[in-house]
């Protein structure tokens, strides 16, 4: 079996003193797509935020280890920007609007920061524009969105597409997509899903956090997990998602 990309063991997390995750185990290997489903309040978004390093989430127990140069490193020792430089990505459930900073300047700063971390030459504006042109195709994004401030005045669907554009630019090794499908109409869902499929490689791991089976019709997962009350209570293949769609979560949650 391949070495793990991310190994979470017995993870407990509190937000504002309230326990949200209570002993969660999860292992992601290169090339795998995992779906995490579960009822509202089960801790799905918390898991994504903890992996990305949001400061409001307090890890009270367990370990999060992430492979860097074939060694498993403690993710909690790494600042959020360092995690991103090492290939961790979170597509936000609610992408943040940033007035005054253009989308292209944001993307370039982000990409150059990673190049710098890798010791590579940073791209100037013209070089980056050329590079970006190909990435826009991945999510069929209108280039006019590049001159606008990040996510400001974007529709819900455009924001989600912008997240996947960022993913395409950064080529993460481990991507958590937090309810990227929510608020999307059928066409937008298809475009976003196709974009993610194009970014799926043998080397990277993708985690889809979702409420709905319909995303999994477009991005077929290798594993489906059910998260309930802060723990993974069931793991299966894609057929588990279909059973959940038919029967709900009640049969798993006592």
């Amino acid at each position: 079996m391949a070495q793990a990309l991310l190994e979470i063991k017995n993870l407990s997390v509190a937000v504002e003193g309230k326990k949200v995750l209570k002993g969660l185990d999860l292992t992601i290997r290169p090339g795998e797509v995992h779906a995490i489903m579960g009822p509202n309040g089960s801790g799905k978004s918390t898991l994504s935020k903890v992996v990305a390093g949001h400061p409001a989430y307090e890890v009270t127990g367990g370990t999060l280890r992430y492979e860097v140069n074939f060694q498993m490193r403690d993710l909690l020792e790494m600042e959020p920007d360092v995690r991103a430089k090492e290939g961790v990505f979170l597509a936000f459930q609610y992408p943040i609007e940033v007035p005054g900073v253009s989308n292209s300047a944001f993307l370039r700063a982000s990409f150059n920061s990673i190049l710098k971390h890798q010791g590579a030459q940073e791209l100037d504006e013209a070089q980056f524009a050329q590079f970006l042109e190909k990435k826009l195709e991945v999510v069929k994004m209108d280039p006019r969105f590049l001159d606008r401030p990040v996510n400001v005045g974007f529709s819900g669907g455009e924001k989600k597409r912008n997240e996947i554009l960022q993913m395409a630019v950064l080529s993460p090794r481990l991507a958590f997509l937090d309810e990227t499908d929510s608020g999307l109409d059928i066409d937008a869902l298809r475009i976003v899903a196709e974009g993610v499929n194009r970014l799926r490689t043998k080397e990277n791991g993708i985690v889809l956090v979702t409420h709905y089976q319909r995303l999994l019709d477009h991005i077929v997962p290798d594993f489906v997990h059910v998260l309930a009350d802060g723990r993974i209570v069931e793991t299966g293949d894609k057929s588990l998602a279909r059973r959940l769609e038919e029967r709900g979560y009640d049969w798993l949650v006592k």
Binding site: A52, G53, H54, P55, E79, P80, D81, R83, A84, K85, F89, L90, F92, P95, I96, V98, F106, A109, S110, S113, I114, H117, Q166, L170
Partner: peptide, 9 residues
């Protein structure tokens, strides 16, 4: 946090 999650220090 959004900036940092995108590798920007």
């Amino acid at each position: 946090f959004y900036f940092k999650s995108r590798a920007i220090p």
